[in-house]
């Protein structure tokens, strides 16, 4: 299959080059006004300009801070709540429909409410990221308990395991893949929450940069902002996968698919 692999690589490289050249070429040849789609060289030049002027990194830092705070708070609240709700079987059965319905609710729609509560402070963006993350983590942790088979517990009990030993040997290993899979999803959600919060009200952050670019009809700046988001998303996914590979954590297919 080596020939197939090399053909794939050749096609991939050819595609990206063709897209970039086609984009640049159609703008240079006057087929499309750069006002609408900018062009790769214009975007690169604008990125350099913003970097040199120190007008890019502070925005990136702001978005990262909001994202990480929201992620940390969401995991810090979501995992314990999921553990409490999931650990006791009768409680789990009682709250399950509520958890599922809450999870299906579009949390993004809370943005106007947060705007009323928090104004345009940092807390608005962190709250957005938090509310997207926390339900993912609650549901993920919660669902992990559903995957523990009664036989495993029974076998452990027969072999004379204490409650603590059962928790360590059966429960925790069963939950880790679920929590981790939810976490991987949450990273992207936290970024999305932060950026949406910035669109709605802010004076800093990548979302602000994009919004400002649109406001001034400056498409190059918009694309610089989008490229920054893409890089953050790809880098954080790669980092999470690297950690998972290191720790040999498996991921699971989440049953109730998450919506923002």
């Amino acid at each position: 299959m080596e020939t197939f692999a090399t053909r794939v690589w050749a096609a991939r490289s050819a595609l990206i080059i063709a897209v970039l050249l086609g984009w640049e070429g159609s703008v240079r040849a006057g087929l499309v006004n750069p006002f609408w789609i900018s062009s790769p060289t214009l975007i690169a030049a604008q990125a350099l300009l913003l970097l040199r002027a120190g007008e890019l990194l502070p925005h990136v830092r702001e978005t990262l801070v909001e994202m990480l705070l929201g992620l940390a708070a969401g995991c810090g609240v979501g995992v314990p709540v999921g553990l409490v709700l999931g650990a006791v079987a009768p409680v789990r059965r009682v709250v399950e429909p509520y958890v599922i319905v809450l999870n299906a609710f579009p949390k993004i729609a809370l943005a106007p409410l947060y705007l009323v509560w928090f104004g345009i402070a940092l807390s608005l963006k962190v709250a957005m990221a938090f509310s997207l993350v926390v339900f993912v983590m609650i549901l993920g942790t919660f669902s992990g308990f559903g995957g523990i088979r009664q036989e495993w517990i029974d076998h452990g009990r027969l072999l004379g395991a204490s409650r603590l030993q059962l928790a360590r040997v059966v429960v925790v290993p069963a939950l880790v893949p679920w929590i981790f899979t939810s976490f991987r999803l949450s990273v992207g959600f936290a970024l999305m929450g932060a950026v949406l919060g910035e669109f709605i009200a802010t004076q800093r952050g990548i979302g602000y940069l994009i919004d400002q670019g649109v406001g001034m009809f400056d498409t190059a700046t918009v694309f610089v902002g989008l490229a920054a988001l893409l890089l953050i998303a790809l880098a954080s996914n790669a980092a999470t996968d690297w950690v998972a590979g290191r720790l040999r954590i498996l991921t699971v297919q989440l049953r109730n698919q998450q919506v923002l």
């Binding site: 609408w36 992207g188 999305m192 950026v195 669109f199 979302g207 994009i210 009809f217 918009v222 989008l226």
Partner: peptide, 14 residues
């Protein structure tokens, strides 16, 4: 993996 809602302002422009 790009948060697509981030494209919303661009779509408004277009």
């Amino acid at each position: 993996s790009i948060p697509r809602p981030a494209l919303a302002p661009l779509f408004v422009l277009w």
